[in-house]
Amino acid sequence: MYRHYKRKSDRFGVTLVEIIVASAILAFIGGIVGHWFFLQREYQGRIFAISDAQQTIRQASWRMMQELRTARSVLFPRINADKSIRSDSKVVFKSFAGDVICYYYLASEKEIRRCKIPNGPGVPTADSEPVARNVDQLAFTASDEGNRIIDIFMEVKGTFGLESVYLINE
């Protein structure tokens, strides 16, 4: 006879109070975690920025270094008349194949771009894609009389990149 009264649906019910308690706790934890996240985002943002900056510096440096490495002569910048070093936001050199290559900093776009000027007939062509983006500062420095050393100094969001390339070809 008792079987008659059995109501299965009641067995796993959740009461309003339980829901309120659960959501209060969830909100509490959520609030704490949210607060924590908010604080961490600042650092996370910095970390991401540094991380991106490093990647930008590495890629741009490697790209420029590889072409400069086998280049034959740096045309610009060259040391000053009084033999002091000279820096500029662009570098122009004669490549392995004898053409004139230029890497230059486009301050308005914060980009490094590359341009190839044929040593002979033909028109200069600029690469469609920049070598690097979000570059805050770029300086190429000539420091030797033989025009075979070029220093690269780059700043991306507070991260600094330093490179030098020695031209192995005459």
Binding site: I50, D144, D151, E163, I168
Partner: peptide
């Protein structure tokens, strides 16, 4: 790790700068 990596990368490039200049000096 990220900050260490930054220092490591910088040290790396500073060493390279010297190594390249050694070739010309």
């Amino acid at each position: 790790a990220v900050f260490k990596t930054r220092n490591f990368s910088f040290a790396n490039s500073a060493a390279r700068r010297i190594s390249q200049r050694l070739m010309a000096m």
